[in-house]
Design a binder for these strands. Structure first.
Lengths: 342, 342
DNA sequence: CGAGTTTGTGCATACGTATGCATATTCTGG
DNA sequence: CCAGAATATGCATACGTATGCACAAACTCG
């Protein structure tokens, strides 16, 4: 079958191609009546504007590139879903790249430039400053999601990691815990540094100190192993703060199923993210909820240049997190109960 | 900054734009030496071919559209990840749409045509036969993933739902279960019909019959509620087959945490999918593993026209599933407890 | 009723690339 | 050394759309 173009529609109605084109652009001066006829005729002919041609001419596809470096972390499906909806709602499409956790994101970024994307969102990863320059030269905005860099080379949207984590520590301390451990993700990531740092800062304020820190790479198995190591040691922590929920759930299972401990009786476990399974009765995980909707909105605003007032200077947005108290941690003073189903 | 095009590269090297273009196409007759120089110069200038222009000319972007109707089901992140890798491996890009579970997929499909996608993969949803025609007219292939239609209007790739489910039933029957229940997804979906049907077929073969069927919409909460209803009834099932793992996990938590039952002591629970969390110690779910890698390969083969031998007739591919035995179901013949001699 | 304004439409061109055709160059073998 | 083949490259054009410009028609108002 032959494809149908704006010229075909034009010929059928005896108008020019320009007129057809204008009927599809909202802000063109064209009488409603004509537009109606054109749109109707277009529909019966099965015509839809070719986005490739449009993009070529305007030098912008209305595509936003999304690079996910940790799709298997249960935190991200929700993020992706919300991003997809938001984008679609504002007439944009999403070009998605899922890359292995330890890949160099730089390698896939050039592909995005080839499609003249309007912007790029990178989750759980960073890009080299060289690549940041490349994007700046193509004036294509980049936003890091749930990750930050401190040299102001790119924008980022994150949860208030430091304060949220400090709050977790405060609650744990107040409840009388004495021996604190952290299960981190990956050592050199902003997420880890901030959450671990915030937690420890608060410990120091209370004159306490960290017993041990393990790394679980943000996987269930990693959290499981880390907890097993921590809880099997001579000096056992009575509170473990996990930098992400998947690890917290692994830790919980290690404590209960592997070591026969009682949670939170023997050890309190707190996570970060509030992924859906954190609310499942078997886990009932106390955690810090990341405000995904708000974070996505912010990220898209940055791309849309609503933020920063035209200055293309990178911004670092922080959205406050919220502690969700369930039953994986002993938190005496505010023994509020939010269990499943609500 | 001004964008750099093939003409710019051409000018720098004193060759024509055509030559530059040919350097980027693998099958063009051009001496290696020239190509090398051009590619090098392109790299220093920061030139990459504009895919929009290329697509416009060839009438094909090398983009594959993916529509996910149930992203929040933990089965899909893995699918998406694997798809993304496979596509990227064969030089294709992915345009992703995540739509609400009950949306009409038809509405987003036209957007894909606008980008002249090479093909479309739809997961957990169907398209109207009218829309199937539209795609056929644009000769753009569509493949349903984990869903099928029976009128041969579109290709599909699924697990061997019927046989796998029958096998589950056989194992449960052999182990001595008597009272069977099913927690289904959504009534009119192929996935539900086939899995529920296969299970019941095997029951009938053994002269048994289904006690009850509930629907959980493939969510944890749905499975939770369904199991609560089933297990709270006068006649309680001793085996529940859940059409998907998320629901099985909900059912498990309902049985244990809500009703205080022992799994598999009081009731055996079997799922379908083998999502990552099925292996978590707290659940340890016996389930049917869907061979995602193989399914994705098949789907992409269909799009690439490797399957079907040039005939563009839709094909229905079925990939065998594999039962993964864990501990949420009693699958050894039940040793009846010997009564004390009278 | 006419000068000026508004409104509607067409013409022509540009976006950046791929490719058929023509031409120039090198190579082959007799 | 030459005819013909093979190789390398340039020219010109097409892909489908958006838009500046020009122009025609309709309208405004004094």
């Amino acid at each position: 079958m032959k494809r149908v173009t704006s010229k075909d529609v034009a010929r059928v109605l005896g108008v020019s191609q320009s007129t057809v084109s204008r009927a599809f652009s909202a802000d063109a001066r064209i009488p409603e009546e004509t537009r109606r006829k054109i749109l109707e005729s277009a529909r019966t002919l099965g015509y839809t504007p070719n986005e490739l041609a449009r993009g070529l001419l305007k030098r912008k596809s209305n595509i936003v590139g999304v690079v996910m470096a940790d799709m298997l972390n249960p935190f991200y499906p929700n993020v992706l879903d919300i991003m997809s909806r938001h984008l679609h709602g504002s007439g944009k499409r999403m070009l998605l790249f899922s890359v292995p956790n330890d890949t160099d994101v730089d390698e896939v970024l050039p592909f995005l430039l080839q499609y003249k994307v309007e912007g790029v969102i990178i989750t759980s990863a960073t890009l080299s400053s060289k690549m940041a320059d490349v994007f700046r030269n193509h004036d294509t905005k980049v936003v890091l999601f749930n990750r930050a860099v401190y040299d102001h080379s790119v924008s980022s949207v994150c949860c208030e990691n430091v304060d949220s984590s400090a709050n977790v520590a405060r609650l744990l301390v107040r409840a009388g815990h004495k021996q604190f451990a952290i299960i981190g993700g990956k050592p050199d990531t902003s997420t880890h540094i901030e959450r671990s740092g915030g937690f420890q800062r608060e410990l120091r304020r209370s004159g306490l100190t960290l017993l041990a820190e393990e790394f679980g790479g943000n996987t269930f198995e990693g959290g499981f192993r880390a907890a097993k190591a921590l809880l099997g040691a001579k000096e056992r922590p009575d509170a473990i703060f996990c930098i992400s929920d998947v690890m917290a759930m692994g830790a919980l299972d290690a404590a209960r199923c592997e070591l026969g401990l009682n949670v939170p009786g023997d050890v309190s476990i707190v996570g970060f993210d509030d992924i859906p399974s954190a609310a499942w009765p078997s886990y009932d995980l106390t955690t810090v909820r990341q405000p995904v909707e708000a974070m996505v909105s912010q990220a898209l605003s940055i791309l849309a240049e609503d933020v920063g007032y035209g200055s293309s200077a990178p911004v670092a947005v922080r959205v406050p997190g919220e502690i969700v108290i369930r039953r994986s941690a002993k938190l005496e003073p505010i023994r509020r109960k939010a269990h499943f189903p609500a």
